[in-house]
Design a protein around this nucleic acid. Sequence first.
RNA 1: GGUUCCGUAGCUCAGCUGGAUAGAGCAACAGCCUUCUAAGCUGUGGGUCCCAGGUUCGAAUCCUGGCGGAAUCACCA
Length: 613
Amino acid sequence: MQIEQKIAHKVAEVIQELADQEVNRQQIVLQKTRREFDGDLTLVVFPFVKMLRKSPEETAKTLGNAILERVDEVTDFQVVKGFLNLSLSDAFWKGFLAAQVQGGEEDERKEGREEEKRRGDDESRQQGKSTGPVVVEYSSPNTNKPLHLGHIRNNLLGYSVATLLEASGREVVKVNLVNDRGIHICKSMLAWMKYGNGETPEAAGKKGDKLVGDYYVKFESALREEMKPLIDAGANADEARRKAPLMQEAQELLRRWESRDPEVMKIWRMMNEWVYAGFDETYQRMGVDFDKIYYESDTYLLGRDIVRKALEEGILHQKEDGSVWASLDEYKLDEKLLLRADGTSVYMTQDIGTAELRYNDYHPEKMVYVVGNEQNHHFKVLQKVSEKLGKPYAGAIHHLSYGMVELPDGRMKSREGTVVDADDLMDEMVATARKTTEELGKTQDFSETEKQHLYHIIGMGALKYFILKVDPKKNMLFNPEESIDFNGNTGPFIQYTHARIRSVLRKAGQKRLDAALGEMEGASINDKEKLLLNSLYHYPATLQEAAAEMSPARIANFVYDVAKAFNQFYHDHSILNEEDHAVSNLRLCLAAHTAQVIRDGMALLGIEVPEKM
RNA sequence: GGUUCCGUAGCUCAGCUGGAUAGAGCAACAGCCUUCUAAGCUGUGGGUCCCAGGUUCGAAUCCUGGCGGAAUCACCA
């Protein structure tokens, strides 16, 4: 940040003069002053104690005086042990605020982004890197089952990370890789062919993904029936599963699909279309979208060709049975199968194909895969295999690995019917939003469409915030018994704070707000205001850090801090009824900027904020 | 067994590249609406930051070794 840079620069300068020593930026630690002490910024002076050969207190005093003298914005300092607490002038804060609010923040932010993008490009050019986009893959559903809570975390994370990267100045392409082929969909197809009597989503009055999922379940239960006698006859579960007639039929269906049997293809296309219609509905409600959708049925053969070519080149080896393997000794990993003896592809082979295609499509600088941590090993191997194959994108592969969503008694198990369906959960959230809002009597003057919209925003806000506020790499717990909170550190709390501010701004009117900018000269800034300003000031840095770490949680916790700081300020001080005009104006600007940061920050999480609630 | 990740208040989670007396929310209890939205604000209680060493002026944070949990080590995707 500007002021931090300036102070850090001066500190280095002073040390240079007094001790004739070089100080690197790493050693200069400036942080927000803890709230129990006076000041805005704190410099940790321990690193300089030896250089100046003074006690920590003396070092702090020396540096404090020098900074006070050389940095206009610093008006005072206090020394507490080895910590130098610096106070910034009211003029500095007012200048910051005016710059933020001025001329509609929307435009300014856009310009800022452009500039950051330019700067980012320059940096990468200097480092000799390509300047392609970041491709973010997320969602990646199978087409045999509806979306569940695990997919919700995936989708929200992927969408938010993409938004975050974009806001930090990167070019981003959002892609979805739909796993539309394979044995799983054949199972649903087979069950539908056998027991469906031509049922359609329209006839059943069901979403297509749900209907296809039902047939998948039907297949599994029918299969278990067939396995029973086999197991009684002495077979183990795996054998029984393989030998059961239904399983054999499903395999046969897969073979017919691979040979493009017209009848099978027709049913396959039809049922997948049902599923896509269902998914689209869910995606739309969730508020996520994609720039490009890849289908494995289009790409699965590509990997096979790459592998065959590499075999010819001697990079890979073949076993007696004809299967093709990559030796990964050099990476201390086991060898990896890439083609079966019968020449068909495995998962890894497909992923090589998709990576290749994606690289050719975009020449991305980075390819981010938002995939659960259960596949850590897979992506490690994918990366190494790509390297071994000499692929230019090997270094670009980045697995954004996130933790599982667990229920109080462990993972979701479709066997035990504990899967939390995505649509059902969203329904519940919106219903709770409605109930809570109506109990509070907040929507009496709302039209029916306004109400629908508000309940959707609040319900989804609660859900999204609940999921995104936890560190992606950690497993998280969801308890279906306790509904997600609307009070405290939650989405609705932040949305409410925004609505409150907007209400004040409406009362003030645009004219007054415009005028306020130029008329806060004499106003002094109190503690609560400064705390809020200090938080707001760190928004750009937080955004960059969150983008670098690909962690929406950083943004979520930041926005919560801002909202909390605002509510404390709002509780203690009146904005419009303040008699001192300059002070009232300053508060108005402060409120306006707070609303903007909340709105922007929440947008990074894919959460809308209401004008009224 | 190997590898990776996690372990912070009763519960759910923060804690930025090592920095001050480890913070929120929920739950419990006690307060605050004739004043800009009480989905808010204030207060009380609640901690062996899994354990033991090490590095450091300074460790919840870094290193090593344990313990506990999760994932993975497929010719499933």
